[in-house]
C-alpha cells in the first residue's frame, strides 16, 4: 500500500523530516505520535502534496505510484485522503455541491460513471447512516461557520464518501471535546476495512482509546525512533515523550 523510504523534507532552509521510513499494508491502522515540532504534520502535508515543503530525499509510493510525481488532486484521485487538522472554510460553496464535484472528479479519473444528483443523494444518505450523522451540515457552505467538532465530522463524512485507499488523519482529535471525539472515532472505526489503510497522526494517546491502531510509531526530530504495538501508546501516555526522545539522543 504505502511505502515511505528515507524521506527527507524541509521548509525553507530548515530540514524537518530527516530520513523517515514507514510501511503500511492494506487494512492496517498506524498511529504516528510525537512531541510538538517533531514533523508529524509536515509528514501528512508532504504526502498529500501541499506547497511550501521541499522533498530533499527519499521516496513515497502508494500502490507503486511515486507520489512526488503527482499533483495534489492526482494523489487524491489515486485514493489518498487527508483529513485536515484545520479544515478550511469555503464561504458560498454548498457542502453538498462540493462533495458531489469532488466525488465525481475522483470517479471520472477512475473511469467510473459520474453520479447524477439522485444517485448521489442516495449514496450520501447511506453514508450518513453509517456514521450516525444528520444532514444538517450538508446544506451549509463548506465548513463555513462550523464549530470545531462539526468541521472534524465533516472531514470524516468526506472520507466516508470518497472511500480512499489511504486516509491520513492529521491531529483529528485536536480541539475536540470528549463527545465529539467519540463521534469522530466511531466514524473512523466504521470506515475500517481490509482494503483501507489509515495513518492517525496525534499528539495524545486519548484518541487511541477509541481507535485501536495496529502499529504505533514515535516520531521525533524528523525520524521514527520507535515502533511498536498499541501498548507503546500507553507507555507514552504514562511516561511522556521525554524518556524515549532522550534515550534516542544518548
Amino acid at each position: 500500500m504505502l511505502s515511505v523510504k528515507g524521506l527527507k523534507a524541509s521548509v525553507g532552509d530548515e530540514p524537518i523530516l530527516k530520513g523517515l521510513d514507514l510501511e503500511v499494508k492494506p487494512g492496517e491502522v498506524h498511529a504516528i505520535m510525537g512531541p510538538n515540532g517533531s514533523g508529524k504534520s509536515t509528514f501528512a502535508h508532504v504526502l498529500s502534496g501541499r506547497e511550501g515543503y521541499e522533498v530533499t530525499g527519499g521516496s513515497a509510493e502508494l500502490d507503486g505510484e511515486d507520489l512526488f510525481e503527482l499533483e495534489p488532486e492526482e494523489r487524491a484521485r489515486l485514493g489518498l485522503f487527508l483529513a485536515f487538522q484545520y479544515p478550511v472554510e469555503l464561504p458560498g460553496v454548498n457542502n453538498m455541491y462540493f462533495l458531489k464535484a469532488a466525488l465525481n472528479a475522483i470517479r471520472k479519473s477512475r473511469g467510473e460513471e459520474e453520479l447524477d444528483a439522485v444517485s448521489f443523494m442516495r449514496l450520501m444518505k447511506e453514508k450518513l447512516k453509517i456514521l450516525h450523522l444528520d444532514d444538517s451540515l450538508l446544506k451549509r457552505p463548506v465548513n463555513f461557520g462550523f464549530s470545531g467538532g462539526e468541521k472534524k465530522r465533516n472531514e470524516i463524512f468526506q472520507m466516508a464518501l470518497l472511500e480512499p485507499k489511504l486516509a491520513i488523519l492529521d491531529e483529528t482529535d485536536s480541539g475536540l471535546d470528549i463527545d465529539a471525539l467519540r463521534i469522530v472515532a466511531d466514524g473512523v472505526n466504521a470506515l475500517r476495512s481490509p482494503e483501507r489503510s489509515m495513518i492517525v497522526v496525534t499528539h495524545y494517546q486519548r484518541l487511541l482509546d477509541y481507535i485501536q491502531p495496529d502499529h504505533v510509531h514515535v516520531l521525533a526530530k524528523g525520524r521514527i525512533i520507535r515502533s511498536g504495538g498499541k501498548e507503546l501508546a500507553l507507555e507514552l501516555e504514562e511516561k511522556g515523550y521525554g524518556w524515549i526522545v532522550e534515550g534516542e539522543a544518548a
Partner: peptide, 13 residues
Amino acid sequence: EDQLFYCRARGLT
C-alpha cells in the same frame, strides 16, 4: 492558498 489546497486534496483541479 489554503482554500485551493483543500479543494485539490479532495480531487478537484
